[in-house]
Nucleic acid binder design. Structure first.
Length: 496
DNA sequence: ATGACAATTATTACG
DNA sequence: CGTAATCCATTGTCAT
């Protein structure tokens, strides 16, 4: 037999196949571990997150000094140990939990479809989580006890003078025009909050404390209280309430002690600071790709699932009120029009963004009010603060700005959106009025698109930025405060 | 048409 | 300081 010389191409291909198989196998094993982890008791005595002497690997001369990074230094780089899923569950924590009179459950994995004690999900070595809990319940209580017309963000109208929170409420963002040149990034407003890729970043909707929550690819949720300067701790707290990439975070401005998070693992949890648990709200076979709440109706939750489905979930009843199949592929964002909360926009990998009217959605596959068509996947569709514009971002390297009666008047702005595999997709986000959209670029800057000029008018740049900021949040109460999050777990906060 | 596969990309931990 | 390892995105291309 003539022996076949293996061509370079074939060799490479075989290698790839082998690698992929190994990777798949590893993923499967991991998910098995997650499923079985109630019984699984693998423990390694020396988990990296408990190592004492942190090795400084930030070049001292570089200006890229992540604020108070020493403490986060110990956070292990890889997903699994970061989440404590497989190898860093320690007995001391179990006994602490038992002492604290939590139900004597065995180890609870974030994948188990049950509530998860916050302390159980806390991933740092010291017990500073209580401090976070105090902070959050502090400002959320303050808000609840204050007079009825004193809500966070000065944002209320139409609130009745009773204690009943059923009263119609409207969330009004702090608005105003910003001179974009005035936005500054200071070293103290930089921190690494979690390891790995950040999928979503969100400010707490209060002016009392500057605090962000981020969710990463590994299922961690990190908090950063930016106001904490130099007392014990660095204002950074990390939990692992999920077993996969966190697709969205929602904080109801009228109940800030409760925070929703959705995950590719199909779970939606509610962090309830009063009960000190990550409650289980919803669990599914399918991935949950986005989550949103109507500004009017905070009794229900909207989220997208699988390949094009949307659910309207009643929080009180704990069941789905409606579900629709709106797209041919995954829905990446859901956003409500702040001026008319019957109107919502979805963006989808099927290449379209659609605007829907909740009053006309009876069929399983309803007809959209209007559709913005792109040539490739659409990764976000957000209404402007006034609701008059819709900004969609697509991998076809376009940002569409749509306006008019039915948003039929669309103009396209070119923007390089080729983020590749390691960077979370870009999403053009509105600032504090209808004039600007903020979006990251591949050169570690933040492009600012002017709606009037239909082009990039400015770019935020800084030597302090060590990675590409890809996910953003504009502070709902503080005009000019913008948080950007990277694939390396850092958060940058620009402010006036 | 459908499906499998390669190439692409940036960040970081580690040697 | 260079480099291996990351690995639930996306798309075009080539095979079936």
């Amino acid at each position: 037999m003539a022996d076949h010389e293996i061509t370079e191409y074939e060799r490479k291909r075989l290698e790839n196949i082998k690698r992929n198989d190994e990777m798949l196998a590893a993923l499967k094993i991991q998910s098995r571990i997650n499923d079985l982890s109630t019984v699984n008791k693998r423990q390694r005595t020396e988990s990296k997150s408990y190592k004492k002497s942190p090795t400084k690997n930030l070049k001292p001369e570089t200006p890229v000094v992540l604020r108070r990074s020493l403490r986060t230094r110990g956070v292990p780089p890889d997903a699994i140990s970061a989440c404590g899923l497989k190898d860093d569950y320690d007995e001391t924590r179990v006994s602490k939990i038992l002492k604290l009179n939590f139900s004597p459950v065995k180890k609870v994995s974030p994948r188990a479809p049950v509530p998860l004690a916050m302390r159980d999900a806390y991933t740092s070595d010291d017990a500073l989580d209580q401090k976070l809990i105090q902070t959050i319940s502090g400002f959320s209580k303050k808000f609840q006890l204050s007079e009825n017309n004193k809500f966070p963000c000065d944002l209320v109208k139409g609130v009745e003078k009773n204690e009943d929170f059923e009263a119609p409420k409207v969330r009004k963002m702090a608005s105003g025009s910003v001179k974009v040149e005035a936005l500054k990034l200071e070293p103290k407003n930089i921190a690494r909050v979690v390891p790995g890729r950040i999928m979503d970043v969100r400010f707490f909707p209060t002016a009392d404390v500057t605090m962000v929550a981020v969710g990463n690819k590994f299922g961690n949720i990190g908090f950063w209280n930016v106001d904490i300067e130099n007392d014990d701790g660095n204002g950074i707290y990390m939990y692992c309430p999920h077993s996969g990439p966190i697709s969205g975070i929602v904080i109801d401005p009228f109940a800030m002690s409760k925070m929703f998070s959705s995950c590719y693992d199909g779970f939606i949890r509610l962090m309830d600071v009063e009960k000190e648990v990550f409650d289980l709200i919803y669990s599914s076979e399918h991935s949950v790709y986005s989550i949103s709440q109507s500004p009017h109706d905070t009794k229900s939750l909207y989220f997208s699932e699988g390949y094009g489905g949307i659910n309207m979930w009643d929080l009180k009843a704990g069941k789905s009120l409606s579900s629709w199949n709106l797209h041919d592929n995954r829905i990446n964002t859901i956003d409500f029009n702040s001026e008319n909360s019957n109107i919502l926009a979805t963006s989808s990998t099927d290449g379209t963004a659609c605007i829907w009217d909740l009053r006309h959605m009876n069929a399983d596959k309803p007809k959209s009010l209007s559709t913005v068509c792109h040539k490739r996947a659409v990764h976000s569709a957000y209404f402007s603060p006034s609701g008059r514009f819709l900004a969609t971002t697509s991998v076809d390297d376009r940002i569409a700005l749509s306006t008019g009666e039915n948003y039929e008047d669309t103009s396209m702005v070119y923007h390089d959106n080729q983020t590749g595999r390691w960077i979370s997709t870009f999403r053009g986000k509105w600032g504090w009025d209808d004039s600007y959209v903020f979006i990251g670029n591949m050169k570690r800057g933040v492009d600012i698109i002017s709606v009037a000029g239909k082009k990039i008018v400015s770019t935020l740049r800084s030597e302090l930025i060590s990675a590409i900021p890809c996910r953003f949040d504009a502070h709902p109460c503080k005009v000019g405060m913008l948080a950007g999050a990277t694939s390396g777990g850092q958060v940058y906060i620009w402010s006036l």
